[in-house]
């Protein structure tokens, strides 16, 4: 599994919806798939499953809003 697939898998698990694997430009906050509680879950999973530490204050909803954007940001932090 390449990096992007792994990221999408984590997002899908946390959102409890596989739509994020199909629609990579879907705004997950506007779609109501992620709230602040699930966001924290996502950050914990990134750390546990991918070994990437994303500080809560780094996670800005304007720039971490779609599966594509999240993958890009994680690539920067890798």
């Amino acid at each position: 599994m390449d990096f992007k697939e792994k990221v999408l898998q984590v997002i899908a698990e946390v959102c409890e919806d596989d739509v994020v694997k199909e629609e990579h430009d879907l705004d997950i906050f506007e779609a109501g798939l992620l709230d602040s509680f699930a966001t924290v879950e996502l950050l914990v999973q990134f750390e546990e499953q991918l070994g990437i530490n994303v500080p809560i204050t780094e996670f800005d909803r304007d720039t971490w809003n779609t599966p594509n954007a999240i993958t890009d940001r994680l690539n920067e932090l890798k």
């Binding site: 924290v40 914990v44 750390e47 809560i56 204050t57």
Partner: peptide
């Protein structure tokens, strides 16, 4: 409050 209290609290509890 969401970013600096709620989310940090949840993160701490989970971690």
């Amino acid at each position: 409050f969401r970013d600096y209290v709620f989310m940090r609290f949840v993160f701490l509890m989970k971690k």
